[in-house]
Every structure is written in structure tokens, then in C-alpha cells.
């Protein structure tokens, strides 16, 4: 599978300041690319350049074999969906209506059971189905974010009828989600990538980024300063420099999945190695006598969410 986006030597300049500087990046189909970097590094700006919302000052972007700038808006909308960092809704739509907006602007058939099925599937994937009849304004921040995730899923599903090459852009999609829904959303993002869609996500949680990314991109002051295999990027030590903090690099068995701890935190918390080195992390850890029993079973992945179907069967 080829690359959905090939961007070369992108510059975005406001006044005399380069907000994005000499960025070269490609989003291959079927891969999840995660971008990290400090506030103001230019991550959102890069995403908006790649989505076509902003025009680069210089540089070229090729999207699915065509020049991005020449692609008509309606076709672009079928090829890629964007979940922005913040979205404000002007009128009191219900959750269901907001998600449907993802269908109707594409000119897709919005009535009938097929459309209903797509909407319901997307609502379920974002675990927001139970709130579908509520007014969007009455939702909590995380619930609103899940609503927008459902909306972009809907847009992708509708676009998939006519376009084979697609991309999904997520700008800090888990910023206000609880732990379970962070994993749920990123699991969904992985699955979407696996179905042949190029996915680009901006995250601030390094450990999540490393755990989920096929490729990790680090940005700093408008430049892409590192990119590649997440474990390698993390081991390279550049992340600590970029964020200006001391990081302790650790690893969890099995497979020594790397993770980082901010050093200050590590110093304050009594540190011990994960004991004992368990062969199979699906096994519950031995519970000490007298300790609170039957808390939660440590698991590697999400316990099955009852109303979340894990298959993307609606992709035609």
C-alpha cells in the first residue's frame, strides 16, 4: 500500500516566524503515526497543513496521488476526516444529530436503515450510544470528545463508499478522556489503521504514544526532530531534551515494551522493579494475605465493553 500523504519540505510562516519549518512527512496507508512535542511545537499546525485547512507557505503535499491544493473540497472530505483539538457547537443539536452531520455534508444518503446502521455503529464505537438523544451542550467534556470521534468515524464510513485511500487525523483525541476511553479510542484508531487507513494522531502521553504508534514523530519548535520506531526514538534520548525534563526509561515485560517516568516523580515514589517478573501478564498478580482482595484483575487489554462491538463490520 502506498502513502496517502507525501509532504516535502513544508514551511508555514506567519510574519517572520516559521511555525512549521522544513517538515517532510509521509502518512502510509494502514499505519498509525503519532506526533508528540511540547506545547506550541507546531503539531496542530502541521496537522492542519496536511488536512488541507491551511496552505503551506512553501513545500508540496501530494494526497492520494493528486496535489492536495488541487483536490476539490468535497472529494477531500470523503478522503479524510479530522478531529480538531477543540470544537465549539453553536446550536443545541443532539449527539445523534452532530454525528449525522458527518454523513450529510458528504451528500451520502442520510435517510434509511443503512445510514441509521452506520450512525449507530459509530456511536457504539465511540461508546456514546447511550447518550445519543441528549443535547450536546449537556454532555461532559469527555463525552463531547467522544461525540466528535463518532462524527469523524461516520464521515470516514460514508467516504469509504467512493474512496479507497483514506486518512484520519486526530488532534489530541484523548485529551479529556478517562483511562478506559483513552484505550478504547486508541484501540479503535489502531483498528482503523489496520483496515488500510492512514491515521495520524497527536498525543501528549508519551507512554500511550509508544504503546500504540507504528511510527513516532517528535516535533520541537516547528521542526520534526526525530521520527521512526517508537522504542528507538524513545531510547535515543531526544524526548527528554525536547521536553526539558529528566526522564527515566523503563521497560515492562514481556517484550520489554519501553515506557518513561518523569524523573522527579520517580525520585519521590519508592521505586521497585516489577516483581516478580511474570511470564504471562494475563495471570493475576499474587495477592498478599490480608491485602484487599479481588480488586481488579490486571489485564493487558480492555475488558470487553459490553456495548462496544470490536469489529468494523460497517466498512463495506
Amino acid at each position: 500500500m502506498g502513502a496517502f500523504i507525501e509532504a516535502r519540505a513544508l514551511y508555514y510562516t506567519v510574519g517572520h516566524q516559521n511555525i512549521v519549518e522544513n517538515a517532510t512527512i509521509s502518512l502510509p496507508a494502514g499505519r498509525l503515526i503519532i506526533v508528540v512535542g511540547p506545547n506550541g511545537a507546531g503539531k496542530s499546525t502541521l496537522l492542519r497543513l496536511l488536512s488541507g485547512e491551511l496552505r503551506p507557505t512553501s513545500g508540496s503535499i501530494v494526497c492520494a496521488g493528486e496535489k492536495l491544493q488541487g483536490t476539490p473540497t468535497w472529494r477531500l472530505a470523503r478522503r479524510r476526516a479530522v478531529m480538531a483539538q477543540a470544537t465549539q457547537l453553536a446550536f443545541p443539536f443532539t449527539v445523534n444529530e452532530v454525528v449525522r452531520i458527518g454523513l450529510e455534508t458528504l451528500g451520502a444518503n442520510t435517510r434509511g436503515s443503512e445510514a441509521d446502521a452506520i450512525v449507530a455503529q459509530c456511536l457504539r464505537r465511540a461508546d456514546i450510544l447511550q447518550l445519543a438523544c441528549r443535547k450536546y451542550h449537556t454532555l461532559s467534556g469527555g463525552e463531547q470528545q467522544r461525540t466528535h470521534f463518532a462524527r469523524v468515524l461516520c464521515q470516514l464510513a460514508a467516504g469509504r463508499r467512493s474512496e479507497s485511500a483514506q486518512a484520519l487525523y486526530l488532534d489530541e483525541p484523548v485529551a479529556s478522556l478517562d483511562l478506559r476511553h483513552q484505550l478504547m479510542l486508541l484501540d479503535a484508531a489502531r483498528e482503523i489503521a489496520k483496515s488500510g487507513i492512514a491515521v495520524m494522531a497527536i498525543l501528549h502521553d508519551l507512554n500511550l504514544a509508544v504503546a500504540y504508534a507504528d511510527e513516532l514523530v517528535v516535533m520541537h519548535a516547528g521542526r520534526i526532530v526525530a521520527s521512526g520506531n517508537p522504542a528507538d526514538v524513545l531510547a535515543g534520548g531526544i524526548v527528554a531534551d525536547v521536553f526539558g525534563v529528566d526522564l527515566r526509561l523503563c521497560a515492562t515485560p514481556p517484550g520489554n515494551t519501553p515506557f518513561v517516568l518523569p524523573h522527579g516523580h520517580a525520585r519521590r515514589v519508592a521505586w521497585r522493579l516489577p516483581t516478580p517478573p511474570v511470564e504471562n501478564r494475563f495471570q493475576p498478580l499474587p495477592i498478599q494475605e490480608g491485602a484487599t482482595t479481588q480488586r481488579s484483575e490486571p489485564r493487558a487489554t480492555l475488558p470487553g465493553i459490553e456495548n462496544t462491538s470490536m469489529s468494523f463490520s460497517f466498512w463495506p
Binding site: 492542519r48 488536512s51 488541507g52 485547512e53 473540497t73 468535497w74 477531500l76 472530505a77 470523503r78 479524510r80 476526516a81 479530522v82 480538531a84 470544537t87 465549539q88 457547537l89 453553536a90 446550536f91 443539536f93 444529530e97 452532530v98 452531520i101 458527518g102 450529510e104 455534508t105 458528504l106 464521515q155
Partner: peptide
């Protein structure tokens, strides 16, 4: 009607959704 519905999400979102 369709375009204004999308515009309720903001101009950038409306653009992403294919509205000119």
C-alpha cells in the same frame, strides 16, 4: 441547510466536512 448544519461546528470543521 446542510452547509449551515456543518457550520454550526465552526468554519474549519465545516471545511473538513466538505463545505465550501
Amino acid at each position: 441547510g446542510r452547509s449551515l448544519n456543518a457550520l454550526a461546528l465552526g468554519e474549519a470543521e465545516a471545511y473538513h466536512l466538505g463545505v465550501r
